[in-house]
Amino acid sequence: MIEDLLNQRESSKSILIIDSFEHKSTNLLYTFITKFLEEDHLNTDLNILPTNRASKLRLVNFLNSDSTGLNEIILEHIFKTRLNIFKLLLDELDKQKSNDPKKKFFLILDNLNLLLRHFDSNPLYLLQFIKECSKRPEISQILIVANQDSLDSGVLNQLKQVFQTVIYVNDTKMKQNELNLFSKLNKQIFKYNLKIEHRNLRSFKVLTHDEIMFIDNEYTVQKVERQIKIKSKLKEDDETEDDMLKGLTFNVHLSSDDLEAKKNLVLPYEILGQKKQIVVEKKRDEESKIFYAPDERDDVDDDDPDDDLNF
């Protein structure tokens, strides 16, 4: 799935990458950029929008001081002004589009957390912006990176709903066998354990993929392993259930006689709704009487207790 997304074989209008301080997604983001730059995209402009100076300098370093694709409109205004930075960005894209109506844009925003902070942690502006981008035909794709360490889970859940694809970056630590696998390449390899939730717009299904991706220091995908977690999980569950039943000091298994008796047993809820039952109910209603046995201490009064109500 990740390869399809990188190669644009699987179209996704909006992608959210969720990483953490321990498992940073910087290299994955750079792989997206590299893949885009490698291929010919007619009339599609790359717009990398850094949100802070450190990120900008890293991007300049990555792009080899060639600032092609770097758009500093957000960096110029974030925190410094109270303006709606998304509106400024969309206005700028509109201007560019007016010069060339066929122009399309690939937007990359490197830090969702700081964007939220600019709007006093109110996700409304960001939600509207993503929805607007999803509607606009000139925006071919928007990719945003969020750090889950400083995001409220409720806000994150809200944001996830508006993105077509959500990529979780989990384990990035290489195991010994994985290190051995790539030892001959003489390249630095980075591992990404990804969970991808992708909404297919044709079938409206949300497909979940668990994949392990290995990329090298030139941002080339070396290997992608697909993980089938559900089956293995089921197997594990079955085994544990058997193990639990093994060590018991009482019998929980049923013999053939027990099973026969169980089959013949009619439970009360099974009678409900049958005709017989309804007849019995009616008879009960007609013949019902109240038998009252007074207690020793009861003060039985023959007078009608509702006499004063003038019925």
Partner: peptide
């Protein structure tokens, strides 16, 4: 934004601050 040669050194105590802010600062 004043200067790209200005090096910022910020000392913050995690016990007295919001961990979300420290996380955001660490990203910067």
């Amino acid at each position: 934004s004043l200067n790209d040669n200005l090096c910022l050194v910020v000392y913050i105590q995690s016990m007295l601050s919001n961990p979300f802010l420290i996380s955001d600062l660490s990203q910067m």
